[in-house]
């Protein structure tokens, strides 16, 4: 049998050296910091960071999260909508955050 290397968690942790986001993501999908998964957190942070009054559109979200499958992003957006963290604005492709901290 093959020896497993010690990091046998389901998903390799992704390091983002380019991202100046202060909120630290523990690379684990199953380790929520505030009840959200890493994907959901990243989506929420991007939406929060958008200064435009109509919010961030889904295309931008995809462009900024290119390492993620579109389905995951969509899922995260749906979840955040359901929870009330974000809402759609001018159309179903633009989102703003409700968390105004």
């Amino acid at each position: 049998s093959k020896p497993n290397n010690q990091l046998s968690a389901g998903r390799p942790s992704i390091s983002n050296p380019g991202m100046g986001e202060p909120g630290n993501f523990s690379g684990n999908n199953f380790m929520p910091a505030n009840g959200l998964t890493m994907v959901q957190n990243q989506v929420l942070n991007l939406i929060k960071a958008c200064p435009r009054p109509e919010g961030l559109n889904f295309q931008d979200l995809r462009n900024q999260l290119q390492h993620m499958p579109v389905a995951s992003i969509k899922q995260a957006v749906d979840f955040l909508c359901n929870e009330g963290h974000i809402y759609s604005t001018v159309d179903d492709d633009h989102f703003k955050s409700t968390d105004a901290e």
Partner: peptide, 20 residues
């Protein structure tokens, strides 16, 4: 734009409901 207001209100309600 009424839609935006309504969506926002609905979202805030959901969020509030979660935080109770």
């Amino acid at each position: 734009l009424v839609r935006i207001q309504r969506n926002k209100a609905a979202a805030l309600l959901r969020l509030a409901a979660r935080n109770v």
